[in-house]
Design a binder for these strands. Structure first.
Lengths: 236, 236
DNA sequence: GTGCAAAGCTTGTATATACAAGTGTTGCGG
DNA sequence: CCGCAACACTTGTATATACAAGCTTTGCAC
């Protein structure tokens, strides 16, 4: 048997979630229902649900049932730069100002990160995040135009790219590179910041199951913004 | 039943590992052996081994057996600042220079991080990491003197604090805070770095099962050192 | 209608069993 | 001694079953 039975059930569930048939918080068939549907024992159906729960895709409650997890619950890591939430958690007001939103031709560096060819097309957005109307982060984002064809139709004054992308394609993976840099000209320009101020620059790539969704370059003045994150290694 | 049977077996195994009875790569009793020893079915013993494997504590190979995992395999995250390995991976030579190793009285900030009272004692080490004899990171570390009483007896020119602490107590959790700062005087002092150079400063807390083990403040010039890490959110 | 108990669903734990598949060892034949 | 087949042992998958524990709905008594 090339594929395991519980693997087939897992894939079935993942497909439903990806396709949007089962949105966030939707109820997933019970162990018994899946068992009957796939003609397997309850323990096998259970295993599929169990493993997806461990992976953060589903949430289970004894007595109530199994549900599609909220994206957030998948990992504390992907919240790291969900600025809107972070600012709100501090009791402050978050606002995003869309500076640019257009198509671009990608250069070598971005092509490698996006997993496409240099010179091919992509979407680009530049958004300034403000906390109580004070700028705290410049977000420069390159987006895969094949996976997210409707990106240019959005208004990122209203919804953050992160929120929008999460709703379009469930992110499955992310990688981060963090550097300390001197305030780049873009950021100095957008708010009077002195040139010799240290900044955190995070390059984040996000994947959906279909491939690289976007590459974001997030730059924050070091003395105003702090990147935190509690990283659990073991859940024992 | 206040404790589950598989939970008891998990704890039994974790205790053996913590106590050092079963070192890295040691063979763990087979499912059948555990089942007999604890008077449970094989499936129950299996579950204990299974969950510890998912948590990265054990490694299993069909046909061969179950073994205590190497610390590294627990998480790609905790490697992030295992500088020695990172430098080696680049094919360069890593060297550590022990600058300080002493007992200290902790101030308010460190007390909170270490989970002890301000004014109580702790151990402190200051180590400069060099790549091909070029300094790349200053490591300032406060260590819980109750959990690691032998810290001051080590020679950190030979073994990194991270390696030593890993061997003493298996780390279970870590949190990181990352800031961009201007090169602090300590770092400027230890090698001729200009004062207005941006640096990455990572504050890392590490836990063992008994509590907070140490707090490390890692400072690296932004243009020389890059903190990378591939963070898997879902393993589907 | 309200309150509450019972029933019925759900997930959680545990067991016994069977066979598949991979590893290591043992021992036999050459 | 070497090569290889057979065997023992290990983990992996799958099933059927039983009962415990928690949530939701139903329905009865008041």
């Amino acid at each position: 048997m090339v594929l395991t039975k519980f693997g087939i059930i897992k894939q079935f569930i993942l497909n439903k979630i990806e396709a949007g048939t089962w949105p966030q918080n939707a109820k997933v068939p019970s162990e018994n229902e899946l068992a009957e549907q796939f003609n397997v024992s309850r323990m096998t159906a259970r295993r599929a649900l169990q493993e997806l729960t461990e992976q953060g895709v589903l949430v289970r409650t004894q007595g109530a049932g199994t549900f599609v997890a909220t994206f957030k619950s998948q990992s504390s890591l992907l919240e790291i730069n969900n600025i809107a939430d972070e600012v709100s958690a501090r009791g402050h007001h978050h606002r995003a100002k869309q500076i640019k939103l257009c198509g671009v031709t990608v250069d070598d560096e971005i092509a490698i990160l996006l997993g496409c060819h240099s010179g091919s097309d992509a979407f680009y957005s530049e958004i300034l995040h403000l906390e109580n109307d004070v700028p705290i982060q410049l977000e420069q984002r390159y987006v895969n135009n094949k996976l997210v064809p409707t990106y240019l139709e959005q208004d990122f004054n209203e919804i953050t790219p992160h929120e929008f992308l999460s709703s379009v394609a469930p992110l499955t993976e992310a990688s981060h590179e963090i550097e300390a840099v001197l305030a780049p000209i873009d950021l100095c320009k957008h708010l009077d910041i002195e040139m010799h101020q240290p900044c955190l620059q995070v390059k984040r790539r996000t994947w959906a199951r279909q491939g690289v969704v976007s590459v974001a370059i997030l730059t924050s003045p070091g003395n105003r913004y702090r990147l935190g994150g509690h990283i659990k290694v073991s859940t024992a």
